[in-house]
């Protein structure tokens, strides 16, 4: 089952850190905000690193109902 990944557009500052850790999952849009382009784009641990490494804590990751990052 795919992860549920949410980016809070209010917190996101468009640093592109998530794209570094999980480049097939996140993409910075022209609005300077990160968007999830494929929730299965990268291995789960990379997506978790992207969320943990987010400098503004804008990314939340759930597996089923459990928040894992």
């Amino acid at each position: 089952m795919a992860l549920r990944i949410e980016v809070d557009p209010e917190k996101c500052m468009g640093g592109g850190n998530c794209e570094f850790w999980a480049p097939k999952t996140f993409e910075l849009g022209d609005d300077n905000i990160s968007h999830v382009v494929d929730p299965e784009g990268d291995p789960e641990e990379k997506i978790v690193l992207a969320a943990q490494g987010c400098p503004t804590q804008a990314i939340a990751v759930w597996r089923d109902d459990e928040r894992i990052a």
């Binding site: 500052m13 640093g15 592109g16 850190n17 570094f20 943990q52 490494g53 400098p55």
Partner: peptide
């Protein structure tokens, strides 16, 4: 690799980090 703090963190995290890498 895992996140480290050389480029800072928070809203001031290095703007040039992708260029530096």
């Amino acid at each position: 690799s895992k996140p480290m703090i050389s480029f800072g963190s928070g809203v001031h995290m290095c703007l040039g980090m992708h260029l530096a890498r």
